[in-house]
Design a protein around this nucleic acid. Structure first.
Lengths: 223, 223, 223, 223
DNA sequence: AATGAATGAGGTTTCATTCAT
DNA sequence: CATGAATGAAACCTCATTCAT
């Protein structure tokens, strides 16, 4: 006998499977190649299954992005909070080139956590990140605008900009343009996914270290 | 009376117009929305005109990229050569925050020229750059691979890496990972187009200055 | 409640219907006029139905030929074997002008069965034969060569040539050029379909009798 | 200074060239592949030239058939007339297997001339015959009917039937079905073009001899 | 006479979506 | 839940034909 909960679990699992297959398809054949039929084929089910669990193709693709956002939000929020245990957990095993350079100011520890956790997340979710970028850059609403384009200022970059601005105000960071600095750091993080997906030999550890060095040297106050 | 050259010119002008309209379409409705019909509509001609001048839709889209590459190649080659007159022309009007910091070593002048000319080019060709990125990230060959994905290592990044490596060997730059450094700088340059296209208030001058500051502080030898 | 087999049967029936409509279209408007839309219109369905059941237009047209070949192969193989019951069944009703002329040698009975069964098959499948000829003469692969052109020597004519050659070696037939004789007989058979489709008054019984007479008089040994 | 006649000659030559190129195209890529552009490409001229000299694509294709018919009519009429000089000219060099068999009756000489001259014509105009058959079998009027389908009874076959009927009435030929006999002979002649075009090793001399043998043995009165 | 440009119709194919079972 | 069948819109492309020069 099957209960409602069983059914719901089965349905949830199927949805998860379909999202996974959509990720595979987006990585392998790109946004344009990711048709409902392609996803169904990769899942080994009929096209109807996809439209049964997702009312629309766009809903499936949005789910690819939403799931990633949720995971990323949890993981990165943990790392940029100052709870030492969490921060250490995330940093564990990554050589910390910048730590001494910028001292161990609160601001630096936060920024350090931000950068390392972001890049660690990318490294751990390479394929999903790649897939989400396909959707972010291509999925459009009926009016032609990008579905995931932030209406106002980009909240992600704004958040990072706030971290930097705080550090400057506290006297922990040198006086650089916080907006430009935020854009630069985000640019690097966002591009790494694409590079690391395309090039399996990509040395992300070295990149992380260099990015931390750059940030440390640029932001250190004692000159 | 019209000569052959006139006819050829007319055809060339029409081709240019179609490329322009393709750029418009790519910016406005994205890669997927840029159909032959959409381009024709924007040009005010029938669909047949497009297929008459370009044997294939892909040929039109490739031309969007090729034209940009040619222009960029000319302009940036000029700026990274050490001919002072050309270099000055490109730099004119942009405050030079990094010049003193890293001294006026040959290596720094070259890298400085590279960064400023690249960002200047992007600023001057915002829409075309944006359009080309749509094509670069989406146009695929029959086998499913990206049409413009470099077969081996990315020559553009490799070139920048070479500039940095040269600077280090000459003793002009501090010893950082040249590969990672190159990836970081290219990431910023490549992402600026997207940002500046999306946000008309985007302050590219500030970003250029900050990027130069970052590079200067990271690469300066005297510490 | 419908089972999988039912569904499969329904799909199979639809495929058969589409092949039939393709045969109709080929007869009525020729190869060039037989578009997917034309077939769909004759079937009373949308164009999508055709492409759903046949991946490609060529696949549908090839099916027209393949189905005919299968039927012809079964029927003619039966008639040219010497099983009397089968042979008689096919010959039933056709006056046998050549039987006495060439005697009832084994070779003659085989050739007689070959000619009568071929012409009987054509008479019974006039429209389908006509349609297949449209496809055979027009369907080309991407490289421009006829899709159904035999790579080496035509196996159909070669088979008939073998029958004649056997008869000569056995002493049942006079010594004529077996290759030329085979080409002549096949020419007549192949052309009869076109003639009989175009002219409803075409007297195929008379033609069959005359062809048998010709073969008998040409091949009889006692002169 | 150019006269009207010169212009007319030049135009006539161009028309001939275009017909030749259409023949080439029909042989190489078939009816469907023979577009105006294809003909123009083979002629090394622009598409406009074709539509300038022929009001319509169909007019060009009809000309392919018409020119062949005119040539064939002249040549075959000469051979089937009883003018000995002409008849001999056509027969020259072809071994005459049937001549003695059926005697040298007037009827036989006429039929013999008919068969040999037809097959000789085909041999001498292989490509043009092949091209014309593509048109005959495919070119359709707006109403969907074959452009070159004879409205009433086929005059070509009717003519041959008349020759045979005359022979029978004169007592030169045995009493066979003249209509069926005519159809059979025409079938062979019509199919030879296709066979000989497809197979360069095709032995047409042997086929001619065998066809004459068949006709002679079937029609000879003394049995 | 010839050309190149342009048009618009029509053909094949892909695909998101709906629906009966 | 799942499937296979069906639809119709839209895309790319080919091509006969017209026209200005």
């Amino acid at each position: 006998m099957r209960t409602n909960r069983d059914l719901s679990l089965a349905a949830s699992a199927r949805r998860g499977q379909l999202v996974d297959c959509a990720v595979d398809a987006l990585c392998a054949v790109g946004f344009a190649g990711t048709s409902i039929g392609e996803v169904a084929r990769r899942a080994g089910v009929s096209k109807g299954v996809v439209t049964y669990h997702f009312p629309t193709k766009d809903a499936l693709l949005k789910q690819v992005v939403t799931e990633l956002y949720e995971r990323a939000g949890r993981q990165i929020a943990a790392a940029t909070s100052l709870d030492p245990s969490l921060t250490v957990a995330v940093e564990a095993g990554s050589p910390d080139a910048g730590a001494e350079a910028a001292g161990s100011s609160v601001s630096w520890r936060i920024l350090h956590g931000y950068i390392t956790s972001n890049l660690a997340f990318v490294a751990q979710n390479r394929r999903h990140v790649r897939a989400a970028m396909e959707v972010l850059g291509n999925l459009r609403s009926t009016d032609g605008s990008l579905e995931f384009a932030p209406k106002g200022p980009d909240p992600v970059t704004a958040h990072l900009e706030g971290l930097i601005r705080d550090g400057i105000q506290r006297g922990d960071f040198a006086a650089v343009d916080p907006s430009a600095m935020a854009v630069i750091i985000r640019s690097v993080i966002d591009t790494v996914a694409a590079r690391s997906a395309a090039d399996p030999d990509f040395d992300q550890a070295a990149l992380t270290e260099t990015l931390l060095t750059i940030a440390a040297r640029t932001l250190e106050v004692a000159r």
